[in-house]
Amino acid sequence: MTTGPSTPGDSARAAEDPAPTGEDLAALLARLLGETDKTQKDLAAEAGIKYPTLNAWMNRTRGTSRINPDDLRALANILRGWGVETTPRQIFEAAGRPVPGPTDVERENRLLEIYRQLPARSQRALLQTAEAMRQATSAA
């Protein structure tokens, strides 16, 4: 487990991220839940995640590579709503997932508008390209 910044640029990020580097999702969630009076069941219910699924992540019996990014964002938002100091970046990194850029409704709507204007063949090609981009990002 890494205990501190390993490169000069990491020191600024370490100052804004309170979680020790190297924590996996199970360890991070256990630590953060320990800062509250809430349970895994509370977290699962409020985040809209099935309790057995969250429990499997926390017991490391289910991998984290396929967790929906919206679920990871929800975990961060719920925990922050409970007064826990965490960031979406910490949650994504602990899950071993690339941190997606911020969602922007305007950009999403523009992309959807463009998609709807394309013929079916081009829509399929766009989806294939987007899926390839997502997979390449996940593998990085």
Rank of each mutant, 00 (worst) to 15 (best):
D10S: 14
V105A: 15
Q90D: 11
P88V: 04
T64A: 02
M133A: 11
A45L: 10
R66F: 10
T87D: 07
P18C: 07
Q117P: 04
R110G: 11
R134G: 10
R110D: 14
I78L: 09
Q135N: 10
L112C: 07
E35Q: 13
R134N: 09
N77M: 08
Y115F: 13
S11M: 05
G22T: 02
R66I: 03
Q123A: 08
T53I: 06
P100G: 01
A120W: 08
A30W: 12
E106S: 15
M133E: 10
D104E: 15
A26Y: 10
L118S: 06
G34S: 05
E85C: 02
L43T: 02
T36W: 01
K41M: 09
E46K: 05
T86R: 00
E93I: 13
K50D: 09
I49K: 02
A120L: 09
M1T: 15
Q128P: 03
D17K: 10
K41A: 15
V105G: 07
V99Q: 04
G81D: 02
D70G: 02
K50G: 10
R31Y: 01
V99T: 10
Y51K: 07
L28F: 02
F92R: 02
D17M: 15
R97M: 05
R89E: 03
T39Q: 03
K38T: 00
E113T: 10
E16A: 14
W57V: 00
G101C: 12
A14L: 09
P119N: 08
S65C: 10
L33T: 07
R121P: 13
G22L: 07
Q123D: 10
L72Y: 02
P20W: 03
T36P: 01
E106G: 13
A45S: 07
P100H: 00
Q123G: 08
T86V: 13
E113G: 10
R73D: 07
P69A: 00
A139D: 13
P5S: 07
T2W: 09
L126Y: 12
A44W: 04
W82M: 06
D10K: 06
A125W: 11
L29C: 06
R60G: 04
T61Q: 06
N68Q: 08
L75Y: 02
I49E: 03
I78D: 04
T87H: 13
D37C: 05
L126F: 15
R134I: 11
P100Y: 06
Q117F: 02
Q128M: 09
T39D: 05
A74E: 06
I78Y: 03
A19Q: 00
S11K: 06
T7R: 09
L29I: 11
M58T: 07
